[in-house]
Amino acid sequence: MYQQNKTEALDFLRQNMNHVKLGNSRHFTWVYISTNQPINTIGLRTDYKPFEGTVIAADARFVAFRLGRKAAFNVMDRGCLPSVTPYAVDEKLLVTPYAHKDFDGRRLDEPTEEIGEHGCIVRTIIIGLTNVKIPLPTVPESFFIKEIVERLENVTTDQGLRTAAQVLADAGAGAEPVQFLDDDEAARPWMQFAIRTDKLHGYLKITLDRALDYYEISTTNTDGETVEECKEVDFTSLAEVIQEMVDDGNWRIAEVKVLKRAA
């Protein structure tokens, strides 16, 4: 399906390039932006970068942008764009597609800096994505809490696009510190995350039933009232169940800012 959509996006671009002046360029470059995660030139997962572009065409399925005066274009799937923007031809926009982010809202591919020995600045450049890590207020001693964390950080959904931990980060779980029962003797160790989406404004609790080796996932609103419960969840289904209970789909929608209105 992705390859078919990409082919149709290229056809759409070619059909709408007649009025675009490319100067002496005989060739053009283009990128198709959808919910599929791109792969960089060395085969690592990456994210789309924000871009400034001028709309050259739009229909019910695609919006095509020219990047500056270069013979370079982006074609975006309308499913990744907010529906409230008209996308008028010649409108200049700043578009920020979905990117994997940490619980504090920072992009995972954002370079980091820290002070090294002798006061030198160490700058780390990320060339491929790593899975988001769950920020715990304290280091757990419980083997079972560590196991829950490890599974949340590695089991995936959305055809491998996001881990369960990423689903939680995208659902606003960084709004409050993560809570957990740090007791190796507990028969039902648990972790709780804040959720801030259009689907749920409250909390999601993951409880491990050690006797059955299954998980119980429940959601509550801010008043403590149970919204939904799902029992006997095996670890391979964690990400899908969590996504179904908290995800409103807004994470996939790009941020769009109008830089210049069409004449």
Rank of each mutant, 00 (worst) to 15 (best):
K133G: 09
N131E: 12
G116R: 02
N131I: 00
E113Q: 12
F103V: 07
H118W: 11
I121Q: 10
C120F: 15
C120R: 15
L94I: 05
N131G: 10
E113V: 06
I115N: 04
L108C: 09
I125S: 12
I125W: 06
D109G: 11
P111V: 02
E117K: 10
I126Q: 12
I125H: 05
P135D: 10
N131L: 00
I134Q: 03
R106I: 13
T130S: 13
H100P: 09
V132M: 06
K101E: 12
L108D: 04
I125P: 05
Y98W: 10
E110I: 06
T124W: 03
L94A: 12
R106Y: 06
L108G: 09
T130F: 07
G116P: 02
P111H: 03
I115L: 12
H100K: 15
G119S: 00
F103N: 02
N131D: 14
G116N: 09
I121D: 04
P111S: 09
F103T: 01
T96Q: 08
F103S: 06
T96S: 09
I125Q: 14
T124P: 01
G128R: 06
L94R: 15
A99Q: 04
T130M: 07
H100W: 00
E114G: 13
R107C: 07
N131F: 04
V95H: 02
V122I: 15
E110D: 03
P135M: 03
K101C: 14
G119V: 00
K133M: 00
T124C: 08
K101D: 03
H118M: 13
P135N: 05
V95G: 09
E113C: 07
D104F: 02
T124N: 01
D104A: 10
A99F: 04
V95K: 08
T130P: 01
I115Q: 01
E117T: 10
H118I: 07
I126E: 07
C120W: 12
V122W: 05
P135S: 05
D109C: 09
P97L: 01
